[in-house]
Every structure is written in structure tokens, then in C-alpha cells.
Write a protein that binds this DNA or RNA. Structure first.
Lengths: 93, 93
DNA sequence: ACGTCACACTTGCATTTTGCAAGTATGAGC
DNA sequence: GCTCATACTTGCAAAATGCAAGTGTGACGT
């Protein structure tokens, strides 16, 4: 499997990169991600589980039943790729 | 829609970025892509159609019923993003 | 002229993923 | 003990993906 295929195996699923992009601005709570991205709640739960398992993000317990999702170093390392893709999407060749 | 979301709308589908990566090495024929990537043939046909419609690649007629798929300038502009994602997949933070 | 072959797909159907809407669990605070 | 916010889970429909087999076409040899 190529390097690109390995990357896509982790962040290639729908919504995954958008979630990571949102977390580049700092830790966010579940409801924040849901409202900001408009992602279906079951998908969000699944992605957060997968991304945590892949070491891209981690859960930070806050008060009782609230927690924050924050990127790990591995997750932060996606910044370059996300910026490059965003620039392409904006059509700045 | 954010820039990243716009990009993913075009190259976020399964196999899309892998096809583009393969074409970074130069124009390829349908059968080459199929064999090199192991992508299902119906999906390959669909992606090539979508990517052509999006202006990422174009068809070059060769002999009778063979043609080559080549990246346009817009497609070539994905190189940066693909390299960045590949580097991340290789785990070079 | 006719059959064969390589190539680029298409088609039908099963499986998997995604999406929507509604429901559950938990503990704080009144 | 009731309500509320928060973070999910669950059931089911729709869409995307995958597999295997089939179709169309023009070159080429006989």
C-alpha cells in the first residue's frame, strides 16, 4: 500500500478531514463540531472513535458529561496537507 | 462551503486521489490504472468521468479504441497536496 | 469476408457506507 | 425528584462501492 493510500485509510472517510480541519483551531466539543460542520451525529461519533483509535485526536474530559476533542501531534501534522488541499479548492494554482 | 470542502467535493471520493497520484507520473491508459491501482472497473469509469467533468484530467485519443488519461494544469496543481498527504501517511511529521 | 483479439467500458446485483430522525444515558442544578 | 444540557446510540432508508459477467468496436491475420 502506498503512502497516500495509508493516509487515506485514516483520513479518507467522509467528514474526517473536515473534522480535523475544525480541530486545527483548538479543542472543540461534540456539539460544536456537529453544529459547525453539519455532520450527522452518528457519523460524527463514528469518525471521532476512528480518529482517536488512529492516534489523530484525543478526548479531554471537562465537566461531568462534557469533553473536548483535541488533535494529537500526529493530528496537528495534517495541517500542511489540509492547507494544500484548501488552497487547491480555492483554485489558487 | 469551505475551501477544503470544495476540494473534497471533487477529489474526496474513494480512489479519486489515488488515480490523480498515478497520473502525476504521466498519462496512463484505462487498463494501466486498473491494474496498477486495483480499482474496480465500474468505479474507475465513474471517477474518470467525474474528474474529467471537474477539469482535473482529459482524454487523449490514441489508436482506434485506446486512449490515455492525462492531468490538466488543474490536476497537476494537486501535486503539493498529494505529496503532503503521502508524507503524512509515511509518518514523517 | 470472417473470426479473433485487445481494449474500454457497461450492467446487474450484493455489500458497505452514509444520512435522517428519534431515542437513551448521565450528572448538574434547582 | 424534575428539568436541562450534553454526548451519544439505534433503527431504518438511501446512496456509494465492489464483484463478476457481459457489450461494443476497430485492427489484424487468414
Amino acid at each position: 500500500m502506498s503512502d497516500l493510500a495509508a493516509a487515506l485509510d485514516i483520513v479518507g472517510a467522509r467528514w474526517a478531514l473536515l473534522i480535523v480541519e475544525r480541530l486545527l483551531d483548538g479543542p472543540q466539543r461534540y456539539g460544536d463540531l456537529q453544529r459547525d460542520l453539519g455532520v450527522p451525529t452518528n457519523i460524527l461519533a463514528t469518525r471521532l472513535r476512528e480518529l482517536e483509535a488512529a492516534g489523530v485526536l484525543s478526548r479531554l474530559p471537562l465537566r461531568h458529561n462534557t469533553r473536548a476533542y483535541a488533535l494529537t501531534d500526529r493530528g496537528l501534522a495534517l495541517r500542511e496537507a489540509i492547507i494544500a488541499l484548501g488552497r487547491w479548492g480555492r483554485n489558487e494554482t
